[in-house]
Design a protein around this nucleic acid. Structure first.
Lengths: 129, 129
DNA sequence: ATAATACTGAACCATATGGTTCACTGTACC
DNA sequence: GGTACAGTGAACCATATGGTTCAGTATTAT
């Protein structure tokens, strides 16, 4: 599992906001100015600018100011590392649960041999909390 | 592109912290108590507890208190929706850039026909900022 | 030249985050 | 019964986030 920490931090954080994910979807359809985005998401220009800055810092959006309008478009960040991280996690997840299945299988075997411990042999309380 | 907003918000936010991603990797290897995690990440019990709560709320971890120790393990959240979102985004990204390639192609054609506008025909300044 | 547009920056606000310490509860061990 | 251990909860702190308003600046249109 690869660690490009600061980048992953930034991009996952950028993706953790509905509005920003919406902006990305919007820019997937067409480039847009700050004001058109602001209007679309019912937000002030300043508010939208901040979101765009966050997305820009995460590399998900690039902008270029032409005259008085700043044009926003999808950036270089293809979310490759992010997709990879999630994928690695999911594999790890599966592996872990296969391992657990193995343990359960073992326990069943032991039980069949009459060596199984009854649950909570030490009387510890099991709370879900 | 599907919108399960609150869930995506929570899980992406949960993933946006190095320590929390580390915890997930750790739990992928073996279940662990709060204190063992706290020690491993050089953090107070209380601090670790908070991270675990965040992961729990995102469904990435489940815990069960047995006696005085709380056992943490990977939760039900397999990051399916998250993987899907990222995947959809990447497709959209590719599509968008193919479209741009198409436009560039068009422009080249026009240029070949002598109908191309020179850049900035209106004299607008192009700033990168 | 004036007015409208599009953005920018500073200041402000409420709330969240990531961490701590300290006091406390419940469990385990001798 | 007493002590150590594992966790919990409240309070605190600094900083970040997501938003606003208001006062500019630069660009475009009339």
């Amino acid at each position: 599992m690869v660690h490009c920490t600061p980048s992953l931090d930034r991009s996952f954080a950028a993706l953790s906001d509905v509005t920003r994910r919406g902006i990305l979807e919007q820019l997937g359809r067409a480039d847009a100015s700050i004001s058109s985005l602001a209007e679309h998401f019912h937000m002030t220009l300043t508010g939208m600018k901040k979101h765009v800055v966050v997305l820009e810092q995460a590399g998900l959006v690039t902008t270029q100011k032409v005259g008085r309008v700043r044009n926003c478009r999808l950036g270089v960040q293809r979310l490759e590392a992010e997709a990879q991280w999630i994928d690695a996690y999911r594999k790890l997840f599966e592996a872990r649960f296969e391992a657990l299945d193995g343990i359960i299988e073992e326990m069943k075997q032991e039980e069949a041999h009459g060596t199984a411990n009854e649950q909570s042999p030490d009387g510890a309380k099991r709370d879900d909390d």
